[in-house]
Amino acid sequence: MSDTTSNYSDSWDRRSRAERLIRWVLWLVFVAVFIQSWRIMNEDTLWFFVEDAPRQFADISSRMWPIRWSYMDQLWKPLWDTINIATLGTALGVVIALPIAFLAASNTTPNAYIVRPIALFIIAASRSINSLIWALLLVMVLGPGLLAGIIAIALRSIGFVAKLTYEGIEEINKTQVAAVTATGASSVQVLDYAIIPQILPNFVSTAIFRWDINIRESTVLGMVGAGGIGLQLDASLATLAWPQVALIFIAILGTVVVSESISARVRKALI
């Protein structure tokens, strides 16, 4: 046995000597850049305050105590508003996102040179602006209230849902599309029978995931006047009412936990 194997080399390296050297140099450069960046970024940091941070944190925490549970009576309504903003905003966004996704996907777009770039631009524009900034703009245009919040959430959701959906459309099984096309079906029928059934699970889970994110995002919209629990948070912070702030944190945490478990359950049931 040993005679037959001894003809073969006993050393093997994944990378050649030169490749290993290059990798080592790249790591060195990366670490050096990181250290230098850290120094530049923190030139203005007052380390005196940072050293003080644990004490400040303990101080604020102690002021939150005892939590003012009675304040909850005033929180139920804005909390309900927050959930409604998230839900209606998501629904509106999803309805608008679906056709945009079909216009943006390279295999379903009616026109790759005009329509597709427009759809992609809408997606990029929606995604690049945070919902808090959308809300700021909309409060100025529409005035304060729930409507501004709902539309802000919808505008932000369009890009997210449309992007993930159009990527799903581009990855569908082409043979199924060919099979339905081969029966003599029209293009709307191909959409209905071959494409939509393939992307539906992906689309539904994206929409629910977005709703879950929107619950969290809508909790801060009230800080700029777009309705929901953020208004109470802003007011409590402004008056240094720490026991109320603590209760609001707890309320938001509770809502997020509940919405996460709902979204997990619905997703499981639908797919």
Binding site: Q176, V180, T183, A185, S186, D192
Partner: peptide, 27 residues
Amino acid sequence: EYALIERLTVMENVLSGRLGYVPFWRS
């Protein structure tokens, strides 16, 4: 690879053979 629409029922898959004959609203 059969090229059936996996998430649709057997009956829907068979009826999809009629797509070229029926109007969109029926399908």
